[in-house]
Amino acid sequence: MRIWDWLLELDRRWVFLGIALTVAIPIITVYTLPLGKPAPPTEMVYDYIENLEPGSVVLVSFDYGPSSMPELHPQAMAVVRHCLLNDLRVISIALNPQGTALGQEVMNTVAEDLGAEEGVQWVHLGYRPGFGQVILRMGESIPQLYTTTPDGRLTAELPVMEGVQNYDDIALVVDFAASAVPGTWLAFAHERYGQQLAIGITAVMATDFYPYLQSDQLVGLINGLKGAAEYEDLLGLEGEKAQGKLGMAAQSFAHLLIIVLVVLGNIAYFASGRHRRRRR
């Protein structure tokens, strides 16, 4: 059997093994690669938050589940850290039932690391069902929608909620999502109430949302694990606080292997003469 036929009939489990090794080795050896210049959409989110006045309110929405954690958790950690470092107030919510525990974990982890006081600098208001209606209702009254925190405290009495009634009092909404929720934020919060919106999304969704950057409907976009790593780099984070950066060497090597496999597969396809057989 010629090498090209052998390559085309290679058991795909060898490809799985190759990808597994390509990903595992950089993680085990803690090998890192330089990131280069951050993508403009990531930098736009960073710059917008950097330019907010201390005490401004940022609403963070955790709209993802564990299946998207590797991409969105590092993004959320970095953005919440940036907000708390800049003395911004952070109000977090979840429009996905699985997002509420993940959001609580992000808020607890970052706040504990920075010593940010719960109820004063940040609060996690938890989950409410029906994301479209929740987003619309917040345009009227956030304290009436989230009357209490998940542990039963009245939100109106929390210092972090002082002066916060609706979107007029929110400087920026950052939505971390692995679903169509950012489209609803755009329609109901941005278009109807003029709310400034940034999104952190999985790479699969990125091409769907780039047009909204070009039309200035978004202030910025963080794209997948790469976006998380870029944001961590902008913040100057290193080590275990930069989970996104830790994964980027594995990501780059896996991409290289996939490119090599795609090129080899195409060469093998044409060199073996299969394209002629298929045409007949």
Partner: peptide
């Protein structure tokens, strides 16, 4: 982008 997302999940 889909490849990047899937590799990220594996990572």
């Amino acid at each position: 982008n889909t490849v990047m997302a899937r590799v990220s999940l594996l990572i």
